[in-house]
């Protein structure tokens, strides 16, 4: 499950920035914000492309881990609660692989150039 704010929440801020700021203010700060907005567009595109499949895979893993059905948000809250109170831990079979797969799916959308992510990709393939 991708973190918040989701692409659908970010896109209106990009549109507002393009309409209201870029057209009137050409300061260095606006140029910086424009690069951030371009990165946000890339993120939104990756989220649209990758999140449906990675969300479906995550849901399957959560159902198997927790032994119950629910939405991604509900099951993630349940998993976090079980980890917080110690009912589940790294000793739980398949938990470590699940956490890695879920975080890697987030990074593939959020920041695929992040050095620790690139290193983990190599390790997971190797």
């Amino acid at each position: 499950m991708q973190d918040e704010p989701r692409a659908a929440e970010i896109l209106p801020a990009i549109a507002k920035f393009l309409r209201e700021t870029v057209t009137t203010d050409h300061s260095a700060h606006t140029m910086f914000q424009a690069r951030v907005a371009a990165n946000a567009c890339d993120l939104a595109a990756r989220e649209a492309q990758l999140a449906p499949a990675s969300d479906a895979a995550e849901l399957d893993r959560l159902v198997a881990l927790l032994g119950r059905r629910g939405s991604l948000a509900e099951l993630n809250a349940e998993l976090a609660a079980r980890l917080s109170d110690g009912r589940m831990s790294l000793e739980t079979p398949d938990l470590k692989a699940h956490l890695w797969a879920t975080s890697m799916a987030k990074l593939a959308v959020d920041q695929p150039g992040y050095a620790s992510y690139r290193r983990a990709l190599k390790r997971l393939k190797g």
């Binding site: 973190d3 970010i10 990009i14 990165n39 990074l107 959020d110 992040y114």
Partner: peptide
């Protein structure tokens, strides 16, 4: 701002870093 939203989406970087430490 878009910048603020994009900082929110950097929490996942820390997930990878934390897993590198503890798992």
């Amino acid at each position: 701002s878009v910048e603020r939203a994009m900082i929110g989406r950097r929490a996942s970087e820390v997930e990878i870093d934390l897993l590198d430490y503890i798992a």
